[in-house]
């Protein structure tokens, strides 16, 4: 499944081209789980001199996530989606595989030093959200400017009915906490279903959890779906549950709002909280299934509340556009 970072880069390339720039996407496969390979992968990026291609000069390099900003270019800017999160803010949580071991401490020490050095080469450092900028300052002492951008489906999302289901969209990985959404259904009215969009390494485990909780009939795992199907699912949902742990930015929030749907999120969900205001365009709950279930119950009991909150969310999300973003990046 294509994640938010890949969508972000593709959208940026499209926007650059629409504005008359010749833009190419440069990708190198990255395996975040292979800790002993992390710095070898960083070295692979460092070996890339992207100052020209096919004899043509390249005027600007826009790097996004670790370790793409290791690439060499005399005019480099970073629009940081995230760093290697397991070595930073996730370290010490269940979502990181870094421990108090000789190699892990050594790798983290190196990555922190190198991130600072490589980002220091950039003419400007931008981030996709305030949360990401805050991390850069906290962990690396790098000041960055948040630049919001709309999600790829922004122009196509629409509002529909407020049906009897909540929607959860995202990779089924531990840090996205699909289990919280599943468990919350045990605290929500029985006629409300949950539709889970997305795939990932935790899919089987999450499906099993729903089964074990006796919620199998109320939770539909539809896997990865195409844009049109996703737009339909958003359009007819009662609301969206989006409860990741310390998300960087989170397209899902904006996609829900652009579909006039309220978002139920958690107080530790990170960048999502830059958009969701409790009681105004959704609910900010404790990271607890019962609390999320109560929020869903409120929406289920009053679909006009869902619409009011969703409309407020739309106003917030509609203000996020590409206008000015490309100009800031190009400098």
């Amino acid at each position: 499944m294509v994640g938010g970072a890949e969508l972000h880069v593709r959208s940026l390339v499209d926007e650059l081209r629409q504005r008359g720039y010749e833009a190419e996407r440069v990708t190198v496969p990255f395996r975040p789980q292979a800790k002993p390979e992390l710095l070898a992968q960083a070295a692979a990026w460092r070996l890339l001199d992207l100052s020209s291609s096919n004899g043509q000069p390249i005027d600007l390099l826009i790097a996004t996530r670790f370790p793409s900003y290791f690439a060499r270019h005399p005019r480099k800017v970073a629009w940081v989606i995230h760093q290697h999160r397991a070595a930073y803010e996730l370290c010490g949580t269940e979502y990181s595989d870094f421990r108090h071991s000789d190699i892990d401490v050594g790798i983290r020490k190196r990555i922190i030093e190198l991130d600072r050095e490589m980002l220091g080469e950039c003419r400007h450092v931008f981030t996709n959200a305030r949360n990401t900028a805050q991390r850069l300052e906290t962990f690396n002492g790098v000041k960055a400017e948040p630049l919001y951008h709309p999600p790829p489906l922004a122009g196509q999302l629409r509002s529909g009915a407020y049906g009897a289901y909540m929607l959860m969209v995202g990779r089924l990985e531990a840090v996205k906490r699909p289990d919280l959404a599943i468990r919350s259904m045990a605290h929500a009215p029985a006629h409300i279903r949950l539709i889970v969009v997305g795939d990932g390494s935790k899919r089987r485990q999450t499906e099993q959890l729903a089964h074990d909780l006796g919620l199998g009939a109320r939770v539909d795992f539809v896997g990865a779906v195409d844009g049109a199907a996703l737009i339909d699912l958003y359009a007819n949902a009662l609301g969206v549950i989006y409860a990741p742990f310390d998300e960087d930015y989170g397209y899902v929030t904006l996609e829900a709002f652009l579909s006039h749907k309220p978002v139920v999120t958690c107080s530790d969900s990170g960048g999502t909280l830059e958009f969701v205001a409790d009681g105004q365009n959704g609910f900010v709950c404790a990271p607890d299934a019962a609390a999320i279930g109560q929020a869903v119950t409120r929406l289920a009991a009053n679909s006009s509340l869902a619409q009011t909150l969703g409309d407020a969310g739309f106003s917030r999300a509609a203000a996020v556009t590409w206008d000015g973003v490309v100009e800031r990046l190009i400098g």
């Binding site: 002993p36 992390l38 710095l39 070898a40 070295a43 000789d102 190699i103 050594g106 020490k109 190196r110």
Partner: peptide
């Protein structure tokens, strides 16, 4: 060597 390993040996 493992006492000061910093993840660069593979690279």
């Amino acid at each position: 060597a493992h006492l000061n390993a910093d993840g660069t040996s593979r690279a």
